Simulated scan of single mutants.
Amino acid sequence: MKEKGRFLKKYRGNECLNCGVPLDIIDRYCHNCGQINTIKKLSFKDFFNEFFASIFSYDSRLRHTVVGLLFKPGMISKDYIEGKRIKYANPFRFFLSVSILFFIINGLFIDFDQMALQFNSGQKLAAEDSKRTKAGVIEINTSSSDSSKTTKNSSEQIYFTEAQLDTMSMFTAINKRWKTYKSHYKKTEEVLPSVALDSLKHKQNTYTRYLYTRSIKTKNLNDNPMELLIFVFNKLPFIIFFFLPFFALIMWLLYIRKPFNYMEHLVFIFHTQTMFFILIGIAVLIDQITKSEVTSSIAMLVFLFYLYKAMRKFYQQGRAKTIVKFLLVNVLFFILAGIGSVITIVGSMFIF
């Protein structure tokens, strides 16, 4: 590599400016802490030269990783667990980087505003249908007393005192307290938990304030569930990142007789899922250009074939056994994905 800027020999010192370890003029970096051996003051030009050099230096590992993932299914994972790691990007960090980039690019093509508009239009039509239905019922039941009862019931506020809640079981009390808070917010639109709880004469603590805040959020989500969808979508890279270790556990159980530990299965999972995002990401871009969804469908089929080849290469089993385990893996994946989706949505409602 051609030396320039702060790397020139004339700028090298006799000791590391960072840790003080003695150095020789041939040392480009400190062998103790890794810092550049230079006494030259940092200039604007040097700063940007080193910035772009670090990008292209990482690009070397990035190139080996991407090429290996694309054209040698399972090979990178096999190399990595055998200790051949210097030329490849870290599988965990690389997966997270690719997945975040995928969701950023994909998010550019998802029109949440249009989806919200369509949802609100659907709600408006449903409300109009409901009004017409109620109008028909009112025409049939013209009794003024019945009408007044209906009005009274619809405006009735749900309220349970603290003393009443204390006599209930834990889950019943949570349910009644939740309904009380939702009813109070619906009537008063009070957003401050302390003010609302004081008005209701309920306990003022972290739990009750949290529950009141969540009841408001839930009410708002009922009116505009797109907010929850956007929230979950933005968190998907991290959700999937923490979801994959459970999938690796399934792989460990399926190949329990193979000499792989859990972390080696996890390396394989992160590599294959990174490939999934690369393929689908490229397909999404092509579909946006061609205004079709054909490429995405083809990419899914390509990935399934890729996964089969990767499993054969990495686990070194015959065709028949690999096909059986491949089918089982996909069934278990969709079951686990379904459970994970439910947990994610429910959990998001409590942290949104």
Rank of each mutant, 00 (worst) to 15 (best):
M251D: 10
E162H: 07
Y181A: 15
T188N: 11
F270E: 06
H64W: 09
Y58R: 07
L328Q: 03
D46H: 13
I36K: 07
Y58D: 08
F270G: 02
V346L: 15
R312Y: 02
A89G: 07
M300L: 12
L285M: 10
Y58M: 13
S348I: 00
F260N: 12
Q317Y: 04
K2I: 13
E15G: 02
I250G: 00
L229V: 13
T142D: 06
Y262V: 12
N49S: 08
T180A: 08
Q157C: 02
K40D: 08
S43R: 11
E264N: 02
G318N: 15
R214Q: 04
S121K: 03
Y185E: 02
N141K: 13
K186Y: 03
I25K: 13
L285D: 08
F352W: 08
K149F: 04
I100C: 01
P22E: 06
F233C: 02
P225T: 12
I76A: 07
L266G: 05
D223R: 07
C30Y: 09
F238Y: 12
T218H: 11
E15Q: 06
I100T: 03
K152N: 03
L101I: 12
L254H: 01
I298Y: 09
I81E: 09
Y80L: 13
L108C: 09
L117P: 00
N330V: 02
F171N: 03
S60D: 05
L96R: 03
I138N: 09
L8S: 02
K179D: 04
L229N: 03
I351K: 02
I25C: 05
L165F: 02
V267C: 02
K203F: 04
T65Q: 14
K179E: 11
A283N: 15
